[in-house]
Amino acid sequence: MTQSQKAGSGSQQTQILGDLVIHQGVTEERAAEIADKRARLVLEEYSREAAPKAFARIQELDQRVVSILANEGKLDALREPSYQIALQKAQISAASTEREGDYDLLARLLGQRANQDSRFVRASVDRAVQVVDMIDDAALRGLNMMWVISAFTPGGNSLGQGVKLLEGLLGKFPSHELPRGQRWLDHLDIIDLVRIIPGSLTTLKKFVPLYADKWPGFLSMGVEEDVAKKVHGQSTELGVAALQMVAHDLKPGYYRLRFHSTNQMRNVMREQKLPEDKIESAVEIALSVCNLETKDDALVPKLEELVAASDALKEIADWWDQIPDFPQPTTAGITVAYANSRRYHQFENTTGLAEYLEQST
């Protein structure tokens, strides 16, 4: 008996014990074949009248998925059976929607799902792909903006710089016709992207107080000149430039560190490859001597002025301040917001989806 075996285009073939063949490596051509095979299974559920439209929509998704996986070097994710199941679920959602943006969002969700060991991430993505075709456009804009405001803290060295960076960041995302009232939150609650606790005594912190808490260093009590000179000596002794104080731009005669928080300070020192014990010693001085996170409430009106002076921020702040109750994005909601946000901004050198999901628990 003659046995003939052929490897697929662009793949490698390994024969074990004469009868077991393993194909290693997935090419773009093979990925398209796999996606097409899953699509054929989905199409079996449709009538001959609906099948052509469903197939055309699924092809829009599949082309995007293969492109993303190829660009990110993740084509081998298609060797995993559970990933093919996730792809099929996304194809079902794609078949149910005519919105071009949904195909992009579904493809980005599958890009996040690729090669994921975390079952937490897998479950969140798998749930997210099943509701994309149900999300109202305005509700998606609201969810996206709500998550970005909560998740990100722009840097800079001063309050003015921070506000400018915030304006630039939020300006990257759709902010026209953001939804108002309760209806859009109820909609997201129904499809499990947010949780609303009825009658909760907790409400969202208003926009200006929220950023005042994100940027305590910019609004710091600061220290007088003699203390600043003492800290300069400690900075030289420790060999930590991060402890060098600058004139407080909001309090004449006072000095502050150039960071908005200890998180920013730690990140800068870690980028400088300082040892952790030296970093923590510097942070302790920043907190106990430099008043880095001791906010001067008398300076908060300055932040209010800067927000009011920006038409874009003023509009977003007004929208944020009217959000009712205390909506909390679910892990699926965070996953949708994260993937959708990356359609507009790539968030280079920032936390990945798995870390954002862990922070939410």
Rank of each mutant, 00 (worst) to 15 (best):
N267S: 14
L243I: 02
V194Y: 02
E224C: 05
L188W: 02
V148A: 05
P216W: 06
P198Y: 10
Q272C: 04
G233Q: 12
A242G: 04
N267D: 11
K229F: 03
F173T: 04
I191F: 00
R258S: 07
V240I: 08
P209R: 11
Q272K: 12
D277R: 13
Y254Q: 08
K229I: 08
V163E: 11
K229H: 06
G160P: 09
E237G: 13
R270Q: 06
K251W: 05
S158V: 06
N263Q: 07
Q182V: 12
E177D: 14
E225V: 13
T203S: 15
F207E: 14
L201S: 08
G217H: 13
E271F: 01
S235E: 12
Y255C: 03
G181Y: 00
T236H: 13
A241D: 09
L170D: 05
S235C: 10
E276D: 08
K230C: 01
D186H: 13
E271V: 04
Q234S: 13
V231S: 07
F173V: 01
K273I: 06
T203E: 15
K273H: 13
M269G: 01
G233K: 09
T262N: 03
K278T: 06
Y255R: 03
L219P: 08
R266D: 11
L165R: 11
F173A: 07
L250T: 04
D192Y: 03
H232G: 10
W184L: 09
F218Y: 15
G162R: 07
F152T: 01
N157T: 15
E167G: 02
A241P: 01
G156P: 03
H248Y: 10
K278R: 09
L185I: 00
I149L: 04
S158L: 02
G155E: 12
N263C: 00
R180F: 09
G253Q: 01
L169D: 12
K205R: 15
